[in-house]
Design a protein around this nucleic acid. Structure first.
Lengths: 325, 325
DNA sequence: ATGAAAGCGCTAACAC
DNA sequence: GTGTTAGCGCTTTCAT
């Protein structure tokens, strides 16, 4: 591989001039531009981004830390993050944390040693101290980390309220709320939203906690559905809703006739299920894209107009609730 | 941030000794180890991996190029790749190619400039010249790139044969084959497997091509199901099968009573559908893990025992075919 | 067993 | 406008 010195030599200029040319910095004569460009062509020269990073302390990488890319919630986010990163010449380092704080810390450290330019993180619920004193920009996505850290997310409480309300309007009177893990911000908020909707009304409610995981959710739903007569389920994620659908099916309960179900997230999964799932959709792509744009601004030293971006949630009515039938 | 010189100074040794300590290379006295270790602790020193890369030409990154991480096939692969990479101290750079050769080339170039150690690629169907003369190791995953490039994949033809056979054994006589995009290796192989199973038998068959994409598959399936009496569908991917299930549902065709369906891939989606999908499962995690281990061996200069690894496909019988009911 | 010093390929003062 | 040169932080001969 040719290096900058080879180029300089072949072009008959100094490395400084070549460097200026490469970075569009400082004055360069048209003539110099011409010869340098030619030399670069001829040698098929590509600058070493690593050598550059060693100077600039910027490797043009963005670390994306998510609990688990297999959870359908995250690929859509990741995709958006990558798209805008690409447009600004950054590339994405994918990190699965499994909600484990040690893994988060490991990646935070390793990637800083690699001079990543910034982080986008869907954090675990644990304490945030390892995030607050990084020396690179960071933005939170979906889950709040610390007041000092910018975030983009949806209004989970309002979203959950809407979803639950929809069930009530459709005539449900015996609701099951499949809430997410206690202590996880968005899950708690969604639960609050559920309560907002039912409070003060003459509704029977049953509340169970279950992880954002298919099998566990199915199991939990099956247990409840066997014991109690439920006519509406508000699930705190699409994946839990999918589990509930499966449970209902195995018990011979028909959806949406005997049981209506509302999910949350608006992942592709929700539209791919049969019947397709009514869900409180987050604009996942938009969230990812905004977060990505946000870190990049931070990296480039620009001001953020907003420290927190709230994306409205939207109720998407499909086939698991009656008005959609 | 402290650097190696600070450590050397504090420890009262030379940077060379510290470097040896860091890399477990060459002789170091116990005494030296002690003081260096102490100095590192005290200064909270972390070596600059970028500076190291500049010497070694190894940034300890593995580029993972996939068509689209949103396709549920790839997150499971990516997850496995990441898990084993982590165990060997590599980190994953995620690249979505959208099957576009320009994007592949862009990433190949950029990442080489960043000294990535190797690539794992689920290639687009295009010509392979830009892959064959890289100066870093590469392994293909799922899709064959070039005879010279190691690959790990399943036996798609045999898998498809098994899946189709299952339909026949369950009494299907009017089959629809939803084949994948022509020209895409695995899709072609699966189609061959389908033909292997039906050839010479008294079976009505209908063949349609559709992308590995939900909406398009649903549309195609709906069209066919409206016009013809079909009692079994072999879909070339789970996502297409999901589309078919939706189409059947909307036409009031019951699964598996009136119509049986077999998918392909064994993604999580297949088990999350209701009824759950009978599918020809690939061991996605294993494929990803093996591919990852393979590039790492290559990176470390080890011999590969096998240049091509074939993972057997496995028929997973669930609820969309009758024997599973 | 350890140190001095060259070099990896680039950027950025500073001088001309 | 352009060149010289000192780093960036590490690895690695080659001496000693």
């Amino acid at each position: 591989m040719a290096n900058i010195r080879d180029v300089a030599q072949k072009a008959g200029v100094s490395v400084a001039t070549v460097s200026r040319y490469l970075n569009n910095k400082g004055y360069i004569s048209e003539e110099a531009k011409r010869v340098i460009s030619a030399a670069i062509q001829e040698l098929d020269y590509r600058p070493s981004l690593v050598a550059r990073s060693l100077n600039t302390k910027q490797a043009m990488f963005i670390g994306l830390i998510v609990p688990d890319i297999v959870n359908p919630f995250f690929p859509e986010l990741a995709r958006a993050v990558e798209d805008v990163a690409l447009a600004y010449d950054y590339t994405i380092v994918l990190c699965n944390s499994d909600e484990k704080i040690e893994k988060e810390i490991h990646y935070l450290n390793t990637l800083q040693q690699k001079y990543v330019s910034g982080f986008i993180v869907a954090a675990s619920q644990a304490d945030a101290s390892h995030y607050t004193n990084l020396n690179v920009p960071i933005v939170a996505i979906d889950r709040r980390i610390h007041p000092s850290i910018p975030i983009v997310a949806t209004d989970n409480r309002e979203g959950a309220r809407m979803g639950t309300e929809h069930l009530l309007q459709n005539g449900c009177r015996r609701l099951l709320c499949m809430k997410g893990p206690a202590g996880l911000g968005p899950a708690d908020d969604r639960f609050s939203g559920f309560m907002d909707a039912v409070e003060g009304k003459d509704i029977e409610i049953e509340i169970v906690e279950c992880p954002f995981q298919f099998e566990a959710s199915e199991e939990v739903a099956r247990t409840v559905l066997r014991q109690r007569s439920i006519d509406g389920i508000f699930a705190s994620s699409d994946i839990s809703a999918a589990g509930a659908m499966k449970a209902a099916y195995s018990l011979g309960i028909t959806v949406p006739d005997q049981l209506q179900i509302v999910g949350y997230d608006g992942t592709k999964l929700s539209s791919q299920l049969t019947p397709s799932l009514t869900t409180v959709a987050q604009d996942l792509y938009r969230i990812g894209a905004l977060a990505s744009r946000m870190v990049i601004k931070l990296i480039e030293g620009q001001e953020l107009e907003e420290h927190e971006i709230q994306i409205p949630a939207e109720l998407v009515i499909r086939e698991t609730t009656r008005s959609g039938a």
